[in-house]
């Protein structure tokens, strides 16, 4: 990921992740420009917590984040997904057979 806001801009860009309530996952909330982590902490606290709307925040320099966004499934690996199984017809047949045997 690039950092468009570096020199002459807002300093170091930190991505902010917030946890709304204990037990919930941290979710990406936005980004902050700050000279360093100390300032970023103060600013993130205000921007994402002044209404007590978060129980916790993670701050990560944008440059530290590694993004992957190309996933390939050329041959259709449906066998390990729920949508790879169509049981309706088979179930109907099996029920009919069972009914016929006991009937």
């Amino acid at each position: 990921m690039g950092s468009a806001g570096g020199v002459g801009g807002s300093g170091v860009i930190y991505e902010v992740f917030r946890q709304e309530r204990k037990g919930q996952a941290f979710q990406h909330a936005g980004s902050i420009g700050a000279p360093n982590l100390e300032f970023a902490e103060v600013y993130a606290r205000e921007q994402y917590g002044r209404r007590q709307e978060s129980t916790a925040l993670w701050l990560v320099p944008r440059d530290a984040i590694d993004e992957l966004d190309d996933f390939v499934d050329e041959l259709g690996r449906t066998y390990h997904r729920v949508d790879g199984y169509s049981l309706k017809a088979k179930l109907k047949e099996a029920r009919e057979r069972a009914a016929a045997r006991s009937g």
């Binding site: 468009a4 806001g5 002459g8 801009g9 807002s10 936005g30 980004s31 420009g33």
Partner: peptide, 9 residues
């Protein structure tokens, strides 16, 4: 910040 990420500081 959004504008900055689009290319205008």
């Amino acid at each position: 910040r959004v504008v900055e990420d689009l290319g205008k500081p």
